[in-house]
C-alpha cells in the first residue's frame, strides 16, 4: 500500500507548525487518494510524541528515537528515512520548507531518484497525459509553485518516480485538527540497525538561538512605514501586517531618524535598495531619497492620507485614508480570504 508521508520537525519537543499544516494537507490528499496518512518523527526522548500527531489524522506514526538523531544533522536523518522509504514506498512525501526540510529533502530525493519540488504554494491531485509517449497518468501530485522570481507560476509533476516529494513553507497551508480522538498506530524504527559510523561524521559543536537578523534586502514582500505612522507604537501595526503576509518591515529615513525603526530597516538612498514582489508603503510621502530605493518593486501599494503624496506616482494602487484604519482592514481581508 502506497501512502502519503509527512516528515515532522520538532522544536523543544513540540511538532512545529509547518509540520502540522502539512499533516492537515496530507490528510486531505490521502482522503482524495483513498490511502493512509503516515508521519515520520526522528529525534530523542520522543515518548508520547504521537499524541501531538494523531489528532491531525495520521494513521501511522513512525518514531525513530535515538540520541544520535538530535540535534539534527543531515546524514543520519537521511539514512533512516531512505531505509524507511525503501520499505514503505510512499507515493507522496511532504516536508516543511525549513532549513531542515530544504537540507534533507534534496538528499533523500537524490538517493531515491525521486523528484522534489521546493516551496510549493499549492498541492493538488490530478491526471496527466503525456502525448509524446502516449501515456495516461491518474492521481498525480500537482506541485504548484512560483518560479522565475515570482513572475510565473509553474505546475510540476513527477510522472514516473516515487515518492513525489514537495516542500512547503510555514503558513502556506492551513492547520486543522481532523479529530481530537483519532487513533493511529505507532511503529518504532530500529535506528540502531541503520546508523553506521559514516553517518555520524558531521558534528554540531555549538548552537545558539537568537533573534534572526533583519533581512529586508531579500524579502519578497515589504511593509514599509514612514513618519506618517506617528510613533514607534504606530509601527507595531506594520509588524502585525507583515506577520500575516510573511513580509519584512521596512522604513523611510524620516521614520528611522524619528526612532520609529532600526536603521537596518531603512529603504532608500542612504539605506537599502529593495526590489520585492510587493511593496506596501504606509504613511510614506515618497521623497526621491526613498523612491530611489524601492521604485523597482514589481508592485507598489501606497497608503497615505494625502491624495497628492509623491509616493502615489510610483504606486500601482493608491489607497487614500488613515493607515490606522486601512491596515487592520487589510489584515482582516487577508485572513478571511486565505484560511
Amino acid at each position: 500500500m502506497s501512502n502519503v508521508f509527512v516528515i515532522c520537525e520538532l522544536e523543544d519537543g513540540k511538532v512545529v507548525d509547518v509540520s502540522l499544516e502539512l499533516l492537515t494537507k496530507g490528510r486531505s490528499l490521502a482522503n482524495e487518494l483513498n490511502c493512509k496518512l503516515e508521519a515520520v518523527v526522528l529525534g530523542k526522548d520522543l515518548k508520547d510524541i504521537e499524541k501531538q500527531i494523531f489528532p491531525f489524522g495520521a494513521d501511522v506514526v513512525h518514531v525513530g528515537d535515538d540520541e544520535r538523531l538530535d540535534p539534527f544533522t543531515t546524514l543520519p536523518h537521511n539514512a533512516v528515512i531512505v531505509e524507511l522509504f525503501k520499505k514503505e514506498k510512499p507515493q507522496i512525501c511532504l516536508l516543511g520548507a525549513t532549513t531542515m526540510g530544504r537540507d534533507l529533502g534534496p538528499r533523500i530525493s537524490s538517493e531515491l531518484f525521486s523528484g522534489l519540488t521546493a516551496d510549493c504554494t499549492s498541492l493538488e491531485i490530478g491526471p496527466h497525459t503525456d502525448k509524446k509517449a502516449g501515456k495516461e497518468y491518474t492521481d498525480l501530485l500537482y506541485q504548484i509553485r512560483p518560479a522565475f522570481g515570482g513572475n510565473i507560476v509553474a505546475t510540476i509533476i513527477n510522472p514516473e518516480c516515487r515518492p513525489q516529494m514537495a516542500t512547503v513553507r510555514e503558513g502556506v497551508m492551513k492547520q486543522e485538527i481532523c479529530d481530537a480522538n483519532y487513533k493511529g498506530k505507532v511503529k518504532t524504527i530500529d535506528v540502531a540497525s541503520i546508523l553506521k559510523p559514516e553517518h555520524l561524521v558531521v558534528k554540531v559543536i555549538e548552537r545558539h538561538m537568537e533573534k534572526s537578523k533583519v533581512n529586508i534586502k531579500n524579502a519578497p514582500i515589504i511593509v514599509s512605514g514612514g513618519y506618517g505612522m506617528g510613533s514607534k507604537d504606530g509601527f507595531q501595526l506594520l509588524y502585525k501586517l507583515a506577520e500575516v503576509l510573511g513580509a519584512e518591515v521596512g522604513a523611510s529615513r524620516a521614520a528611522v531618524d524619528a526612532g520609529y525603526a532600526e536603521h537596518e530597516r531603512q529603504v532608500g538612498q542612504t539605506g537599502v535598495t529593495v526590489r520585492p514582489k510587493l511593496y506596501i508603503a504606509c504613511g510614506i510621502s515618497g521623497q526621491i531619497q526613498h523612491t530611489a530605493g524601492m521604485e523597482e518593486s514589481s508592485m507598489v501599494i501606497a497608503i497615505n492620507n494625502d491624495p497628492n503624496a509623491p509616493i502615489n506616482n510610483v504606486a500601482d494602487y493608491v489607497i487614500t485614508g488613515d493607515v490606522n484604519d486601512i491596515i487592520p482592514k487589510l489584515i482582516k481581508a487577508y485572513k478571511k480570504n486565505t484560511k
Binding site: 509553474a154 505546475t155 513527477n158 489607497i319 487614500t320
Partner: peptide, 21 residues
C-alpha cells in the same frame, strides 16, 4: 524525474495607479 506540466504567467496590471478609498 520532475516535469513542468504547465506554466501560468503572473499578470501584472497596467502602470496607471488605481485609486481606492
Amino acid at each position: 524525474p520532475t516535469k513542468v506540466k504547465s506554466i501560468q504567467n503572473v499578470v501584472f496590471q497596467a502602470k496607471e495607479a488605481r485609486v481606492l478609498t
